[in-house]
Design a protein around this nucleic acid. Sequence first.
DNA 1: GGATATACTGACAAAATTGTCAATATAATT
DNA 2: AATTATATTGACAATTTTGTCAGTATATCC
Lengths: 201, 201
Amino acid sequence: MTEPTRRVRRSPEQARRLILDTAQALIARTGPEGLRLQDIAAEAGISHSLILHHFTNRAGLVRALTQQASAELKDRLLAAMAQPESSPEDLLDRVFDAFAGGLAQRLAWLAVMDPDGGVEEPATMRHEIADTLYKRRLAAAPGRAITREDTQWLVHLVAVAAFGEALYGARLRRGANGGEAGARRFRTWFAALIREHNQGH
Amino acid sequence: MTEPTRRVRRSPEQARRLILDTAQALIARTGPEGLRLQDIAAEAGISHSLILHHFTNRAGLVRALTQQASAELKDRLLAAMAQPESSPEDLLDRVFDAFAGGLAQRLAWLAVMDPDGGVEEPATMRHEIADTLYKRRLAAAPGRAITREDTQWLVHLVAVAAFGEALYGARLRRGANGGEAGARRFRTWFAALIREHNQGH
DNA sequence: GGATATACTGACAAAATTGTCAATATAATT
DNA sequence: AATTATATTGACAATTTTGTCAGTATATCC
């Protein structure tokens, strides 16, 4: 006589979160090839059928993953902007950190895989951020001629640079400035460039 | 009686290039999921066995792909640097173009997939480029205090920004500045920032 | 023109991967 | 305590994908 198999019964939300989190971790570690239902299931300690039960499809899982990654980026960036009275250096630092830890990799891969997924978020988010920063810059330098468009492009530059740095920076910096130290030095240099731009002209 | 099947017999180099090129095209189009031996074979008009014959493994193919992508980037960047007497705007434009057309996507994906592949190239390449540009900047502005390190980081910034822009820029610019026009406006703004940095202080 | 090397193919094997479905265990409800 | 709803599993099917191997066609060399 066989023992009845012990089961953990989660709430749908818990189950979905467990699956999504382990999937994200797997992507960050193993890369694109890591997204196999069986692998995710094995890592999460569940059967792969459960994933299909909660997301219907492999495609459904991917969709959910893009949305979660997008939301995570938004949270991190808004958190970075939340401290109103900090130096530009610190702000830049936090923005760069927002993309680190595998999030950039996930976003990149998901972007390639699901070209039109999670469309609305990033653009409006960048708009909000640019507006907030615009007011802050005006307050900081009352005399200067700071336009809204300049702020917008500045935010864009920081975003794409942080993205590129997280994704390919270490590779480009190999040798002399590889590793953590080089990354930090680049950030400070970049912060100085921005500060120069804010003051100059 | 059956007709003997007509065959094309290429040189090993030709065959390898045919396979690599169609594979790169497929990745750019279909994304990571597109790299299946059968699909590549079908698109190239060959049998999938031939791929295995020339690259031994799927892994061997991936390795070759990373090297080719890396080499392609190098070629494009060196070509961009080759015109010695052009405005910074044009130079920036060509660097950004170097990452366009799916190359950034391929590099990103291959980077995630084969974390230590094609290691040596980019770093030394960036070094060469930085040196060339350093001399050019010195010649252009004899009086200024331009350091080698500043040039190095400038090159790094342009590289990661171009990379990020190619990969995620369109997404971030959705809405107001989406499309081609926004991309161009960002480039000109960025060029102005660099020019300002070159002249100022 | 015949022999040789090898690029190339087709069929097959083996493994993996997504998806289906019926059965079961567990929590909540009555 | 019995009933109900459903989260979870295991077995199975179907398709796909990588890889193997023996044989065939084609160019080159003697």
